[in-house]
Design a binder for these strands. Structure first.
Lengths: 367, 367
DNA sequence: TCTTCACCTGAAACCGCTTTCGCTTCTAGC
DNA sequence: GCTAGAAGCGAAAGCGGTTTCAGGTGAAGA
């Protein structure tokens, strides 16, 4: 098929350009790739011929010769139906990574690893000479496996200690959220956690418990899937069991949107009767009604930084970097001062967000 | 760097395996790639050696030799910040495409083409020997350009006549939406359109106008960006100018979520005072409060079908295929019969959706 | 005027895999 | 027992680039 491949595509190769320009392939390569190394007259001639022939260098051949593909892999160990379409978080990850790639010739490839084929897929991926991999949601075992084979990898969720990662301090973030509700005078602050087993969910639950303990309040917890239904059902159940609840912290905006629906459907008002704070600041937060006060995760920023670190390296970066989390005030739990509450505007993440003074500082750590 | 590339990576090649197994590279290749063409004893030996050495075939070298990369390109002519993170639609496209790729060794690559570099990028992409390209949101000019260079491409939005596309009949879909509001007894049905210039937005506007004319109702239109703010501001303005409005059709769920916020913030109830029908059935529809009645677009299905057509071909497929659109009933505009309205449940797209009898049939066309 | 050195340039050797082509060996049929 | 035919296998020629290495030219310095 070698022959066939060439014939069927019929695209001009570097040797065609060389022949037409009366130079060698080596010279064409130099003209195209390097600033120096060829005389001006030849440069212009080669460029002219290449343009005339419509020559496009083959990314594949180039990759084979240089030993580097211009791709960054985004990996999730989950069946694709569960995340990309269902959770706004991953769109933000991709958008952040792409923004760092703008103007580069590097591409983004996305991989959904089903459990049964995950290990083999990880091995195959690590064998590709890629720029690196972004682990958007990969189990610690598989993250370690990839790291051992390839190194060039950064996780965007809490992971095994050996694997480089960009993280947020979930515990501190939830403390800020609960402290905000407490400052509003709420004393029956419930929490809806994500599924146990998910490391982020676990950290956020720990944050809630520590905050509740700190304020001497009763723990009122429920658990649900990281989706609207999870939040909706958990909130309804919580209110049924504990009608005295006057505030809720919900571990993700998608769940929080569902919780708000359950609360208002039950005849209570948000935020007057029950104040709600979400987590993420995703699209779900601004689509909810009322719009959600939430902890903003700098997901795009993290993905962009991770991408840049993979591409260019970063002497400042050790194995861990923590990002600050902002409390974004909207109507589901507006600030104490009524003056700050612009009922009906609904959002404007820029204008009404405030960087919490108690957010953990961005810090580095190297094991 | 040829030398360097090999040394630095130090991964076993097919020749290493061949040497260790005492056979030729050709034989190893045959064992790995084809069912027949090698004796059983050699097969097992080669597999054993490959496993022992941790041999992983190089996708790049393979692509160069065969003339085919195992990638499908997803292309949008827009800066990435504007779509991936901001609009749930694109996550659904990716999820649909990925689901068709599950179990395959084909990958998804995503490309955000900024206007200034779009033409050059299209040329470079078309030169790659990919399986094909999914045009998620590409201008007709660039779509045509790609098609002329590469053929293997399918658009997921209305595009130039020469380019293959999977589409929904937006006009018919909006007629269904407006007819539903009319059936509920609403006679002041306003519309919030997407930005003019967008072909989908234009088609949906046409659908609204034709439906309104059909029922002999007054046209009450506003326009906004395809985002929450666009819907919110347009709805507020519409209600200010036309307080008599008792229903709204909104061209996308994200906008509709904003519209619902504006309506309730203005002191009116949804759906009692103003019924709302959105478009897409994206996450925004189920996060809104109340959840949105909306026109469900089979986006995942379309993306999956397009992917399969690119991979395997489809003798049934000509140049155009139209997909049916479903009316999904939720609380923002529940069905006429009160019995169908389960206040508080909020959704369950599966259970309470109904395939509209007036939806256009799926049809094929070849120019 | 002769050397030295810098700078271009082309030939050739890869990068790692696939596939063709031809040789050898084995099986089956007469 | 001999001949066809099939099947297994290896050598070698690509796929389309990049990079090394060596040769050739011209300018600068002695």
């Amino acid at each position: 098929m070698n022959q066939a491949a060439r014939v069927q595509r019929g695209k001009p190769t570097i040797r065609d350009v060389a022949r037409a320009a009366g130079v060698s392939a080596a010279t064409v390569s130099r003209v195209i790739n390097h600033e120096a190394g060829a005389s001006p007259s030849i440069r212009t001639r080669v460029h002219a011929v290449a343009a005339e022939l419509g020559y496009q260098p083959s990314a594949i051949a180039r990759a084979l010769a240089t030993g580097r593909t211009r791709t960054i892999e985004v990996i999730v160990t989950e069946s694709c139906t569960g995340w990309l379409g269902a959770h706004p978080h991953y769109g933000r990850v991709l958008a952040g990574a792409m923004s760092a790639l703008e103007g580069t010739d590097t591409q983004l490839r996305i991989h959904s690893l089903t459990p049964d084929r995950a290990a083999a897929a990880i091995d195959a991926l690590a064998a590709d000479a890629t720029v690196g991999a972004l682990l958007a949601n990969v189990t610690p075992e598989l993250a370690t496996r990839y790291y051992l084979r390839c190194r060039r990898v950064i996780s965007l969720v809490p992971t095994a200690p050996a694997v480089p990662a960009l993280e947020v301090d979930n515990v501190a973030a939830v403390r800020i959220a609960v402290a905000h509700l407490h400052r509003l005078g709420r004393r029956r602050i419930a929490a809806i956690h994500g599924p146990v087993g998910n490391s982020c969910a676990a950290q956020r639950r720990d944050g809630y418990r520590s905050a509740i303990a700190h304020f001497g309040l009763p723990e009122l917890s429920a658990e649900g899937g990281f989706n609207r239904e999870g939040g909706h059902d958990a909130a309804r159940e919580l209110l049924r069991r504990h009608p005295e609840i006057d505030a809720m912290f919900v571990a993700c905006d998608l769940m929080a949107a569902g919780a708000v629906q359950a609360i208002t459907a039950g005849g209570r008002r948000v935020p007057e009767d029950v104040a709600v704070v979400g987590f993420d600041d995703s699209i779900a937060a601004i689509c909810a009604n009322p719009p959600l006060t939430t902890m903003r995760l700098p997901v795009e920023q993290m993905a962009a930084d991770a991408t840049r670190i993979l591409m260019d390296g970063d002497p400042e970066f050790g194995f861990r970097r923590f990002y600050p989390v902002d409390l974004v005030l909207r109507e589901s739990a507006p600030d104490f001062s009524p003056a700050r509450l612009s009922r009906g505007a609904g959002s404007g993440a820029e204008s009404d967000s405030q960087r919490s003074a108690t957010a953990p500082p961005s810090r580095e750590s190297t094991p």
